[in-house]
Amino acid sequence: MERDMRLREASSFGAAAVAYAEHRPDYAPAAVRWALEPASGPRVLDLGAGTGKLTATLVALGVDVIAVEPDPAMLAELRRAQPAVRALSGSAEAIPLPDSSVDAVLAGNALHWFDMAVAGPEISRVLAPGGILAGLWNVMDNRVDWVAGLDRVSGSAAIGPRDTLGNWRAATAGLHLPETGVARFGSPEQAEFPHGQRRTADSLVATIATRAGMLVMPEQEREATLGRIRAFLASRPETASGEFTLPMLTGVLRTRRR
């Protein structure tokens, strides 16, 4: 049952591809630079690239990026937003690239969806010797009082353990390891980098509505959850009117191919 729900959530984003492209945040450039720092060359694969949020940051940093995404609707949005990028249909478990063809594989808010028993060897295959695997997550800074309150009222379907600073390290520390067999990557390093996203109450609710747990939630429960979130944001002086900055960090898990 848990595996079925995970697969359902992983495949839910295509139905919200336009909203995802509009509302999900980009990634802190300093975090992406740190992820790529040990890479021996400029060839980067954005794996599980979605609508191209991480791709755009990589393009801005001037690296040679290829994007791979399994969902047709998400891939269409990526191609629309980044027409100059080579964007391919494929998955972490079946990467449409030759052996040793990239120097780094990055995954933005995607590594936790990979079946690493299959994806681990595939990622290892396309990486050049000593290549870098890095997962990046945008996490809300729940050291800030109103963000901690938002976390409490939202529920785990809206804001999960990988979505807040207090939990993301523990929730992601082992994600680079295959579920079975010998690890193909070295010990991971983790780091966080300050980030933020300009939001209104309405656009923050729209952002939360693109999370997988919300997308698969029954409609009545979904509307009740979003209603609680709207009411909370309306009750806080920081978020009740106009624009505000959602305090975030981009967390990075980085490891090297053996």
Results as ranks from 00 to 15, higher is better:
residue 2 E to D: 14
residue 3 R to A: 15
residue 6 R to G: 10
residue 6 R to P: 10
residue 9 E to M: 15
residue 13 F to Y: 13
residue 16 A to D: 13
residue 17 A to Q: 05
residue 18 V to S: 14
residue 20 Y to E: 13
residue 20 Y to G: 13
residue 21 A to V: 00
residue 23 H to K: 06
residue 23 H to T: 10
residue 24 R to I: 13
residue 24 R to M: 12
residue 28 A to V: 05
residue 31 A to H: 10
residue 31 A to L: 12
residue 40 S to W: 14
residue 40 S to R: 13
residue 41 G to D: 04
residue 45 L to Q: 01
residue 52 G to S: 04
residue 55 T to E: 01
residue 66 I to T: 11
residue 67 A to L: 02
residue 75 L to I: 02
residue 75 L to H: 08
residue 76 A to S: 12
residue 79 R to P: 05
residue 80 R to D: 02
residue 80 R to G: 01
residue 81 A to H: 14
residue 88 L to W: 00
residue 88 L to V: 00
residue 92 A to M: 04
residue 101 S to N: 03
residue 102 V to F: 08
residue 102 V to I: 03
residue 103 D to R: 08
residue 105 V to C: 01
residue 105 V to Y: 09
residue 105 V to K: 03
residue 108 G to S: 07
residue 110 A to V: 15
residue 111 L to F: 13
residue 115 D to K: 14
residue 116 M to Q: 05
residue 116 M to R: 12
residue 119 A to K: 07
residue 120 G to T: 02
residue 121 P to R: 00
residue 123 I to T: 04
residue 129 P to T: 11
residue 132 I to M: 11
residue 133 L to A: 04
residue 137 W to P: 00
residue 140 M to Y: 03
residue 140 M to G: 03
residue 141 D to Y: 07
residue 142 N to Y: 07
residue 144 V to L: 12
residue 144 V to F: 07
residue 150 L to K: 00
residue 151 D to G: 04
residue 155 G to T: 09
residue 157 A to G: 13
residue 158 A to W: 06
residue 159 I to M: 07
residue 169 R to M: 04
residue 170 A to G: 11
residue 176 H to R: 09
residue 179 E to M: 10
residue 183 A to P: 02
residue 184 R to P: 08
residue 185 F to D: 00
residue 185 F to K: 04
residue 186 G to T: 09
residue 188 P to I: 04
residue 189 E to P: 00
residue 190 Q to S: 01
residue 190 Q to W: 02
residue 191 A to R: 05
residue 195 H to I: 05
residue 195 H to P: 10
residue 197 Q to M: 08
residue 199 R to H: 15
residue 200 T to W: 01
residue 202 D to M: 12
residue 207 T to C: 09
residue 207 T to P: 07
residue 207 T to H: 15
residue 207 T to L: 15
residue 208 I to G: 08
residue 208 I to R: 01
residue 208 I to H: 02
residue 210 T to S: 12
residue 210 T to R: 04
residue 211 R to I: 11
residue 214 M to C: 12
residue 220 Q to P: 13
residue 222 R to M: 10
residue 223 E to Q: 15
residue 223 E to R: 15
residue 228 R to M: 10
residue 230 R to D: 06
residue 231 A to R: 15
residue 231 A to H: 06
residue 234 A to Q: 01
residue 236 R to H: 11
residue 237 P to T: 07
residue 242 G to P: 00
residue 257 R to H: 11
